[in-house]
Amino acid sequence: MTLEQMARIDTSYYDIDSTASVAEFLAVSKIYAREVVDHYDLTASVSDLEWTVSKRAKRRAGAVSYRDGVPKSVSLTWEFFETHGWEATAETIRHELVHVHLLNEAGDGSHGARFRALADELDTHVHCERFADPNWWIRCASCGAELVRYRRSKLVDEVESYRCGDCGGELRVVENTDNE
Rank of each mutant, 00 (worst) to 15 (best):
A132D: 12
S73C: 07
V173R: 00
Y13I: 11
L26D: 04
A88D: 08
D133S: 12
I31S: 06
E121L: 03
C164I: 01
S54N: 01
R149W: 12
A106S: 11
Y32K: 03
P134V: 09
F80Q: 01
R116C: 05
V100N: 00
A44I: 07
V64H: 08
T19A: 11
E79D: 13
E121I: 08
D178E: 12
A90G: 03
P71A: 09
E91V: 07
V174H: 11
S54A: 08
T177A: 10
G107V: 10
A7Q: 15
M1R: 11
K30T: 12
F25P: 00
A113E: 15
S18F: 06
E105V: 00
E4P: 07
A141K: 15
L3V: 13
R151Q: 15
S75E: 08
W51K: 00
T43E: 11
D17P: 05
E160P: 08
S12T: 15
T52N: 02
A27G: 08
E35S: 07
L103F: 06
E4D: 15
Y40A: 08
Y162L: 11
T124H: 04
W86V: 04
V53S: 01
S65C: 15
V28P: 00
R151V: 14
E160W: 13
S153W: 02
M6D: 12
I93G: 00
A132E: 12
Q5Y: 14
A33K: 08
W86A: 07
T19C: 11
V22H: 10
R116Y: 08
A7N: 14
D17W: 03
L42P: 00
D120A: 07
I16K: 05
E160R: 12
C167T: 03
F25C: 00
L102M: 03
E160S: 13
E180P: 09
R94W: 03
G107T: 12
E175M: 10
L155V: 14
H111F: 01
S47R: 15
A106V: 06
L42A: 02
T77M: 05
V64R: 06
R60F: 15
E175S: 11
V126D: 09
T177D: 11
D10T: 07
V28N: 05
C140R: 04
E121W: 06
M6S: 12
H95L: 02
E87R: 09
D166P: 03
V156R: 00
T177M: 12
R151W: 15
T19F: 07
A113V: 13
T11I: 10
S21C: 10
E82Q: 14
P134H: 06
H95V: 02
G144Q: 07
F115H: 05
I31T: 13
L3H: 09
Y13W: 13
V148C: 02
G168A: 10
W137L: 13
M6T: 08
T92M: 06
N104P: 02
S73F: 04
T43V: 07
T124E: 03
V98Q: 11
I138Q: 01
T92P: 01
R130L: 05
D133C: 05
L155A: 07
T124Y: 03
L103H: 03
L122I: 02
T2S: 15
D41R: 15
G165H: 00
I9R: 04
E87G: 02
I31N: 11
E96W: 04
R34G: 06
